[in-house]
Amino acid sequence: MTADKARIAKQFIETIPHSRELGMRITEIGDGLAVIAMPYDARLIGDPETGVIHGGAVSALMDTCGGAAVMSHPRSPAGTATIDLRIDYMRPATPGQTIVARATCYHITRSVAFVRAQAFDDDTDRPVASATGAFTVEGG
């Protein structure tokens, strides 16, 4: 049952045009946890001098990953939408490296799901960004 849910969530995320555009790939999903990788891409550069990815692209990754975590939660009936999302940018991501976001849906009610997420580049000890968000629980 849970494996099925994970498969549906994975399928759904992978049909999102904008996520596909950014090359996002789900590497792990299930039980309220989602891990999504976004490869380095010159189109996403925010600072041309250093080649660092724009914070906005990291926001898109965090948002997608948070939504995926909610959808994969055993108590989430179906779809979800973001209510709010706060992102802290701790350091610039190293140019050329894939950014990996890891989101956990740590609490869910009939109407709201709460999510925490972190994003890393190759240095997995020091997060690039962290996020917290609230998502709607739909179709219950």
Binding site: I16, P17, H18, S19, H54, G55, G56, A57, S59, A60, L61, M62, D63, T64, G67, A81, T82, L85, I87
Partner: peptide, 10 residues
């Protein structure tokens, strides 16, 4: 995409 809206605002 919510991420696009966020990026646009940023």
């Amino acid at each position: 995409h919510g991420g696009v809206t966020a990026a646009f605002l940023e």
